[in-house]
Nucleic acid binder design. Structure first.
Lengths: 216, 216
DNA sequence: GTCTATATTTGGATAGAC
DNA sequence: GTCTATCCAAATATAGAC
């Protein structure tokens, strides 16, 4: 494996993500990706076997890098208000990088392509694992800890972000409106954390009551 | 326009949605749709002009029908707990019908296809308009009314549902886990509605304080 | 490893008979 | 309105020279 090869494979991975981000999986043909990478089209098949496998490789690598990027910031979080700050930061950077858009596109393609399905599962698992760990810690210290399952919330948050990014492609203003509401909901949660002991006890009791009604 | 025509157009619309649901936009070719409809492939172009326009027509019609289906149930809702009951019902039926999956697929295709983008905007707007009206009413009667914007929440909920359905295609168990968490969050919101006046006042104050900090 | 050339398949779209 | 036949473009993938 010469250094030229490394370069070519890397160029292809980068280009693959760029094309998926800007034109969707539907527009991510071998020719389009090769053109973006300024690399010969046949090399996609030589190095990766198929277009789907190239996209998978690119996604896997990008997800690992992205998650690693935030690991330190995440480990520092131990309250809902902390999490809010970090989350806003992560969202800003990820929107810039367009990685959620890519993930949404891969998930959409997963419906008809098993290789993309594997890539999608891997990407989402990487994010939710990370978010799950933080949420476990944060929820343990919150009055809501007994009511909400960390893993479930991690999956929900990831799915919601993905949905919003998808939305963004068709209707940017509305998508921004949706995202703004997450911050308002966070306000409510933070407010709950800030309640006095009497109110918190009342809330926990009321929620446990409702919970019994809906799960029972 | 003979009755045979009506039948053919309707068959094509139905088949288009079925194929998009089961194989994604990527798999929704003219040939695949025509085969599913047991109709000649050329008729797609004769009746609708292009595959995208067929999908758009099918989506538009389906969305109207679906929204109309729930209109009565929605108008009856005037509390968060009511909404919870109706929402669970709607979700169950919509998941069966697969209409959110179709919407997610259309949104994904919107990235590279202006006609699908128009269809996506239309579909999401129809749902959010409906949900918005309910939320406005419900939030007005809730202690959270002053904190959360109805329209924004309607968009967020729609986007989250879409994300979960997308997720469902690649990893069904995890997607179900995510959806279950929505119910737990609803428990918390319902619990807030059930708080005594003192706790509610404390919460409103705390939230307003946080809100000032984050929006200010 | 990289290039050109090309085989092969699939899909959108139309012409023209019925 | 519907059907058959077909054209054309685009895409995946491979063969073989360099």
């Amino acid at each position: 494996m010469t250094s030229r090869t490394v370069d070519t494979k890397a160029r292809l991975r980068t280009a693959a993500l760029a094309v998926v981000r800007e034109r969707g999986v539907g527009g991510a043909s071998a020719r389009a990706i090769a053109a973006a990478a300024e690399v010969n089209q046949a090399l996609i098949f030589y190095h990766f076997g198929s277009v789907s496998e190239l996209i998978e490789a690119a996604s896997d690598e990008a997800v690992e890098a992205r998650v690693r990027l935030y690991r330190d910031a995440f480990t520092g979080v131990d309250s809902l208000s902390d999490l809010l700050v970090v989350a806003r930061q992560v969202h800003e950077q990820e929107r810039q990088a367009g990685s959620m858009t890519v993930m949404a596109q891969i998930m959409a393609g997963a419906q008809s392509d098993p290789v993309l399905a594997r890539a999608g599962r891997h990407a989402l698992a990487a994010w939710t694992d990370e978010v799950d760990q933080v949420l476990r810690r944060v929820l343990a210290a919150s009055p809501l800890g007994s009511l909400i399952d960390g893993a479930g919330l991690a999956h929900l948050v990831s799915a919601a972000f993905m949905g919003i990014e998808l939305y963004h492609g068709a209707d940017p203003e509305s998508a921004d409106l949706a995202f703004g509401t997450i911050e308002r909901l966070n306000d409510v949660l933070s407010a709950i954390e800030g309640l006095g002991p009497a109110s918190q006890r009342a809330l926990r009791l009321a929620a446990a009551h409702v919970n019994k009604r809906t799960t029972g």
